[in-house]
Design a protein around this nucleic acid. Structure first.
Lengths: 232, 232
DNA sequence: CCTACCGATCGGTAGG
DNA sequence: CCTACCGATCGGTAGG
């Protein structure tokens, strides 16, 4: 599933944009033994990163189909053909965005749950899940998950399975919490349906949330809990 | 805002696909006075209808950008250039889909509210609104509103204003009902935020609802009310 | 509404 | 990673 593969060995060489320099400066002597990371390899990591970040932003703002690989290349400071050195297709780039987004979301959710005291109520656990979900949807890295949510259909079937697995992992902790709340009478709907409604309510916030002037993510979390869960 | 305009006067003439018939049959004599609708004009209505319906379905299943005007033409039994006889651009066709969808939704909602007894509780009124919203999202004409919800960004700014107006009209009856529920203590969240969450929960159902095997729209309605509104 | 077409753009590739 | 390019497709149009 790790799609991107470089097509040629990365050879250290001068950037074509930089004017030629004396050899002693442009090509520092290599130390003996296993070759260290070359300047190009480090740079390559940056380029890949810039491609993924730019793609995430463009896929979110314009949609997958309307964002051209030329747009994405330009956003990363490259020329039109270069993204295909890092990703074998536009769809592989989409997969990379979604897959990275889901990794971040799963990790972020694990951290959030780890911060909840072991004896915390189901209500406290749901609060942590909801608060983290808003962070994932609307926080600093907020291009990735909206792309995942809204560009699902542009994946190939195989890619879709990969993302679905990460989505299952992300959603897994929610059901036991909702079932506990239903058991104690604080959630009145069937937990399976409630889960779908609640995710919908939260996911839809990317359509209307405006960071400026609006509510904070903490406030949104409190409102969501007040709406879904009985207090008494 | 009524974008589609025919470019030439609609002259009654034989369909090119149909073999030539004797004049007396193919071209019935016109009665005196203001011309009645000709066969071609009736047919034109059918064609326009087929274009809009096919576009709605293709925009929903493939997305606006991925659905080509050739696809849409083929779905209506036409050749590639012909949709542009009925609509001046692909985006005008999108607008027609959304605008028709919103008209249907507004009308359907009016009927639903008219069926609620005058002295009905706020809860009953919300039930009618939610039930109708599911019908509009998931019922028989269910391609139109999902397109409206998910292809918003492909409209021109001017078109967007037109749709926004219809959306405001559709959403208007919800706030008083939610405010009444909040006043009587059956809705615990701020009504303005609750409205956004509730629409999100319902709108998201187009992502997971499968007509076969799943819940009925009545059951979904009851679950939604149970989730959002206190019973006691 | 069809036929025949156009310019623009797109994803992707070869070769260095 | 750039340069130069290709075939395919797309929205749209003229002319009948």
């Amino acid at each position: 599933m790790e799609t991107p593969v470089r097509r040629k060995p990365a050879l250290a060489r001068k950037s074509p944009k930089v004017p030629a320099l004396p050899n002693s400066i442009a090509e520092p002597r290599r130390p003996r033994g296993r070759p260290r990371k070359t300047i190009d390899e480090l740079d390559d990591g940056n380029r890949r990163r810039k491609l993924i970040d730019g793609a995430a932003r463009l896929f979110r703002t314009k949609g997958f189909d309307a964002a051209s690989t030329r747009d994405i290349a330009a956003a990363a400071g490259m020329h039109s053909g270069s993204p295909f050195y890092h990703f074998k297709s536009k769809s592989a780039l989409l997969y990379a965005v979604m897959s990275e987004g889901m990794s971040l979301a799963v990790q972020s959710q694990k951290n959030a749950l780890a911060g909840v005291p072991p004896a915390a109520s189901a209500r406290e656990q749901l609060r942590a899940l909801v608060r983290n979900h808003f962070e994932v949807l609307l926080g600093s890295k907020s291009d990735f998950i909206p792309v995942m949510l809204y560009e699902w259909r542009s994946l190939t079937p195989v890619q879709r399975k990969g993302i679905a697995k990460m989505k299952d992992e992300y959603e897994a902790p929610w059901m036991p919490v909702l079932m506990a709340l239903a058991r104690q009478g604080d959630l009145k709907a069937d937990p399976a349906v409630a889960r779908l409604f609640i995710f919908g309510a939260l996911n839809w916030s990317v359509q209307w949330f405006a960071a400026k002037g609006g509510k904070t993510l903490d406030q949104l979390t409190e409102q969501a809990l007040a709406l879904f869960i009985r207090e008494d």
